[in-house]
Design a protein around this nucleic acid. Structure first.
Lengths: 343, 343
DNA sequence: AGAGCTTCCCAAAGCGCTTTGGATTTGTTT
DNA sequence: AAACAAATCCAAAGCGCTTTGGGAAGCTCT
């Protein structure tokens, strides 16, 4: 069923039917009602493509998911983020189109998205330090919103980020107050902006407490269970091992816990752990009482919110770039306790 | 840059330029070359929407991701599957469009996808037992391919599945050969078809070895760490506890391991564990030597292959439905060992 | 009763592409 | 050299929608 058939069926012109369906005022209430009923009856939906062609809007948002060629990694938060954004799109009649792309072809994808007029805007995932995409998208005049921020970027841009600096500074402070002085950081890859900011927060806290920064206690890598395990295992074998860990993700934290146990130690007693928790649906931090003490911020909510922000800037192109910063919730679980006294 | 401008620029008609770009034979090699060079120079890409309108093809595949309203769960394998499918689409000039939908509006989404002519076909995720979507999509005449199978469905349909029955029967056999007689199953939700098949495989092995089926050793739920933990913890507290576990996912298995350790037992010595391993990029089963003994099958490969199958059936609509079954690789890790002798 | 408004509807153009059905040029045959 | 075929290219229609620029009723007002 298309517009032509529907309007013929109703004995009206295509114009009138189109207007009735799109809420224009030049149509009497009675006719509109009649049209709407018929549309429902025949299960008429306008063709997205035709509508897009006619209006010049794509009614679609692009998500370009980088998959690093080196690690073949799909960011595990991606699923939940997308789920959140999808809710927003569904509510607003937008479609989400996904491109999986290795980092080499990234620029090409954005250019093609623009020149094919396939989307009205894009969400930028996994921003890196000095990320060239901000400049690229700005020059392409393709509306975009970043999930995270870009250090060393002086162009204005729209983003939503978690306050990573604050969260990790606070977490480190908390460990300090518990008496810990050897605090390790199991971070994500530091070319990723969020990891960089977390390290800065961690270092800021150490500095403010006069604790020297020991690079032996810091590592930066993909956030997998294995890598968390290996990093923590090695650090615990040091002559002067850490009494506490700060992890960038719940998945790494699981590995850290395993390393602690393999050293014959108990988490929460001998060694404390704080992790960032993205509240992933398949990896909850315990039930009623959290297992890990954590800096918590739902990535699904972030997806929902950021999509709203993007749709908003597309609607009102004149608006200046929007900046949204979410504060983490600090939850105390069973993984932290007073630093063990030296015997 | 659009076709009109490009052709004006070249002093050719739109027809010729279009034909040159789409590989039709009515164009001389020289002209084609000239056109291709100009297209690259001006970064010309045809508008997807206009092309779709003109050809009647959407050049897009829909993925409808169900998010259960009860659990708010996004299937953790989803990210990797999508990454695999995305590779195929990119190679074939297709777009992937994603709809997140709660189970209540599912039917509506498929109908709307069809009537808006938004996609050329869809991938069906997370098939359930007796899944109504097969009948729905067949009647809508919307091409589709299922990631998994549907028990109790006598309609023919295209799918790709892992041989779940075989994998779990083999895994149970393996545990039997190690001397285990009390083997627990920590399964996914049993309305999911894959979980059902795994249970059947498990039960088939028990029956063939004359071991009675004990429902106290079986549980069926979402595959999270917490739930794996709780299920295993409870079972290990039974008067006659299991000496081995069979898990539906690596995430559950992590929970099971934790439960084993919380009981003061050692995995691989006191209690054996076998898990299914989807080879998720962020959750690898160890490095060179696997941690868990596992039935392994990459979900990313599955995504790539299933997308190929779907594009193929769309291309050749006359072909009968395709059925692809992937066998799991059985890998032996450190999580299994001979059953402990009773003292 | 006619001017001037609304109200309600329509015909037709246009979005950017593909494709049909020629038209023109060039090459080949007899 | 005429006749025909092959090689190249083009004008225009059409895909399904929105939107512009009216036009025909039906009112109100003087």
């Amino acid at each position: 069923m298309n517009l032509k058939e529907l309007s013929k069926n109703l004995g009206l012109s295509q114009t009138t039917v189109s207007r009735a369906l799109n809420g224009y005022p030049e149509v009497s209430a009675a006719t509109r009602h009649r049209v709407e009923r018929a549309a429902k009856e025949f299960n008429y939906h306008p063709s997205t493509r035709a509508k897009g062609l006619a209006t010049g809007r794509a009614l679609a948002i692009g998500h370009v998911i980088p998959v690093s060629t080196k690690h073949e990694m799909v960011n595990p938060v991606f699923g939940d983020f997308i789920a959140g954004a999808g809710e927003t799109y569904a509510r607003n009649g937008f479609e989400m189109i996904l491109s999986i792309v290795d980092d080499l072809n990234e620029e090409q994808i954005y250019r093609s998205l623009k020149s094919r007029r396939a989307v009205d805007g894009v969400i930028v995932h996994g921003p890196r330090i000095d990320d060239p995409r901000i400049a690229l998208l700005t020059s392409l005049e393709l509306p975009f919103a970043v999930h995270g921020q870009v250090t060393h970027c002086d162009l204005p841009y729209t983003f939503l980020d978690v306050n990573n600096h604050e969260a990790f500074e606070q977490a480190t402070d908390y460990l300090f107050d518990l008496g810990h002085r050897r605090i390790a950081l199991v971070n994500g890859l530091e070319n990723m902006d969020f990891a960089h900011r977390r390290r800065c927060g961690y270092e800021a806290s150490l500095r403010s407490h006069g604790i020297p920064i020991d690079t032996a206690l810091m590592c930066s890598n993909e956030m997998t269970e294995i890598i968390g395990y290996e990093a923590a295992y090695k650090q615990l074998a040091l002559p002067n091992p850490p009494t506490a860990f700060l992890c960038a993700s719940l998945i790494s934290a699981l590995g850290v816990r395993r390393a602690i146990e393999d050293h014959g130690l108990t988490m929460g007693k001998d060694v404390s752990v704080i992790t960032h928790d993205d509240v992933l649906s398949y990896l909850q931090n315990g039930g009623d009482t959290p297992i890990f003490t954590a800096t918590r911020s739902s990535v699904r909510t972030a997806g929902r919110r950021l999509a709203e922000v993007l749709l908003n800037t597309i609607e009102h192109t004149t608006k200046p770039p929007q900046r949204v910063i979410l504060e983490c919730e600090f939850v105390v679980g069973q993984s932290t306790g007073p630093a063990p006294r030296k015997d």
